[in-house]
């Protein structure tokens, strides 16, 4: 049953990912749309591509073995690099929506620290296991940026309609996803180290569920009417 819920959550996440990618491609590059939207279709494309080549659940179903006998280890390597990719994509987005110069400088500093940390932990532990500390570090950095965005939103003198503000929905989606998976990955690291793979797999469904919600919020952000 847990396998079913895992599969169901995975499938739902793929569907919402594809839908967000499709709508993102249509809406994000339209005239008048903010520039910060441009990076999201790329992010969503990479997400779905990684799921196709590296998801350990999808591959046996469709009999896809892009890396044949090394599939499991390669999958972990890909997910690890995907963490870095995701961090930099989100940071690039926040560098465009956040106004504070000092926060932008801090973001670049944190990204540098993250890159250093990831490199060091990969060298120490290897790339063939999921780098949970890197994921947690990513969550911490991006959550700080999300909170900065919300703080600046309230400090802005000019009134804006939040329902029509794409950045609000995108940041809410990112904040929700990372805030949801932060305690999850803390727990999952412990579960994996104690061999509790069944529970680990089940809890991963929550990650997929959070992703679904994030993709839906992304869709809301993409489809906001920004033209006045």
């Amino acid at each position: 049953m847990t396998t079913h819920i895992y599969f169901l959550s995975n499938a739902t996440a793929w569907i919402t990912n594809l839908l967000a990618l499709f709508l993102g491609t249509i809406y994000c590059y339209r005239k008048g749309q903010p520039v910060y939207l441009w990076i999201f279709p790329l992010y969503l494309f990479v997400s779905i591509a990684i799921e196709i080549v590296a998801n350990p659940f999808l591959i046996p179903i469709f009999n896809l073995l892009a890396f044949s006998s090394h599939q499991a280890q390669t999958g972990d390597v890909i997910y690890n690099f995907y963490t870095v990719f995701e961090t930099f994509v989100f940071a690039a987005f926040f560098l465009q929506v956040i106004r504070s110069t000092s926060m932008k400088h801090l973001t670049i500093l944190l990204l540098s620290l993250f890159a250093f940390f990831f490199t060091r932990s990969s060298l120490v532990n290897g790339l063939y296991i999921i780098n949970d500390p890197a994921i947690l570090f990513e969550c911490a950095i991006i959550i700080i940026l999300c909170l900065t965005f919300f703080k600046e939103l309230f400090a802005r003198p000019e009134p804006i309609d939040l329902f029509k503000e794409p950045s609000f929905w995108l940041v809410t989606g990112i904040f929700f996803y990372l805030a949801a998976i932060f305690p999850l990955f803390l727990l999952m690291a412990w579960l994996r180290s104690h061999g509790q793979y069944k529970i680990y797999e089940s809890l991963y469904s929550i990650n997929n569920f959070a992703l679904c919600v994030t993709h839906l919020l992304f869709i809301k952000g993409f489809t906001c009417r920004t033209k006045k």
């Binding site: 847990t2 929550i206 569920f209 919600v213």
Partner: peptide, 13 residues
């Protein structure tokens, strides 16, 4: 486990 997951997801929503 499934019930727990459903409850957690509902709470998150």
């Amino acid at each position: 486990i499934v019930i727990s997951i459903v409850i957690i997801c509902t709470l998150l929503i």
